[in-house]
Simulated assay, not measured.
Amino acid sequence: MKKIIALVLSVLMVCGVFAGCGSTAADNGKLNIVTTIFPIYDWVREIVGDNDNVNLTMLLDSGVDLHSFQPTADDIVNISTCDMFIYVGGESDEWVEDALKEATNKNMIAINLLDVLGDSVKEEEVKEGMEAEEGEESEDEPEYDEHIWLSVKNAKVLCEYIAEQLGKIDSADKNTFKSNTAAYTAQLDALDKDYQAAVKQAAVKTLLFGDRFPFRYLVDDYGLDYYAAFVGCSAESEASFETIVFLANKVDELHLKAICKIESSDGKIAQTIKDNTKEKNQEIVTFDSMQSTTGNQVKGGTTYLSVMKNNLESLKNALQ
């Protein structure tokens, strides 16, 4: 990947593509901020507010999942020349290291969100009954759960850090960033309290996903238990008979009234689990992991808060 990125940048420099595809603050008088996924993009949008001094780009805007994304030539140029680049920092972002080494803007601030959270980042967990990934081998290095944005508590910490870093490269707007962030984190605090209240009133305290499970941070925030077909970063799409039976038995044992899935799933595994329960009358509830939110959805009014509020309603349904 490193050689490919270096080659792309060399070719683009020779062709003069930089002038058209990516410009720095020095070129256009504006701050250029590049983010990978939608949640980060939306946080920054809230922090900068109606600031005309900022150009904000979301790389993953076409519905491509974080785990399968590969940057285009234009993406590499935008990263290379931007003033701030913000990314998750997990295994799915391994390409970022090489891209940053080739950056032409040596004053760029690059923010790895996993690094910001430090010790609060969780190792990926394989729960009882989960489908093992094909070719899975033991590794010396732990694999960390990348889905940090699905914690409202994490969102608050990360927004405050991003605002602080933005103030360093735009001191004139530092106070605006600070006040915008304070207003936004107040909304996050209110939503956090709504989640706490919903869990406190819930009849059950366990979620069951016939799907990948990227919501580890969310369930840990509120003391919930869970079962799932796959870990959050799994590339598997077919569950074994043993996995289906295990999860169906858990639905019966815990008297669960809902089986959950994520937004990109066709729901077939959840339906098969339902078909193998005694009652066969569970609701299939969808949670949005924001792993494939598109630019068109953003234009249509989708925000981080709107998605997390919808997830709260899904949580209430799942815990009834």
Rank of each mutant, 00 (worst) to 15 (best):
Y217Q: 06
I273W: 00
E136C: 04
I111V: 08
S237I: 12
A110R: 09
A182N: 12
L166Y: 05
K268A: 13
K193Q: 12
V231Y: 07
E139D: 15
K316Q: 15
L31S: 01
E238T: 15
L56N: 03
K156S: 10
G16W: 06
D50W: 03
V77Y: 07
T277Q: 00
G90C: 00
V14C: 13
D266G: 12
N175C: 07
V307I: 15
E124A: 11
A183G: 08
S240M: 05
N53F: 06
A229K: 02
S289D: 10
K278A: 13
V34P: 01
L208I: 10
R212C: 04
G89R: 03
M130G: 06
L9P: 00
S292R: 11
S234A: 13
T81C: 09
V48Y: 03
M108W: 01
H147L: 04
V285H: 08
G63I: 10
D140Y: 04
V96I: 08
L218K: 03
Q320S: 05
V77K: 13
K274A: 09
L207Q: 06
V285F: 04
F85W: 00
V121G: 15
Q165V: 04
Q165F: 04
T35M: 02
E164A: 06
Q282W: 02
K106S: 07
V54T: 01
L56V: 04
D75Q: 10
K268T: 11
V44I: 08
K205R: 14
E137N: 11
F241M: 10
N310I: 04
M108H: 06
L166A: 01
K316A: 05
V64G: 12
E283T: 11
E94D: 12
V152G: 13
V11I: 14
D170V: 11
Y144I: 04
A182P: 08
T81E: 06
A163H: 05
T36S: 10
Y41H: 13
I259Y: 05
L114W: 02
P142C: 14
A25T: 03
F287T: 03
V64P: 09
C82A: 10
A228V: 07
Y217S: 09
S120V: 12
K178N: 09
I148N: 13
V44H: 03
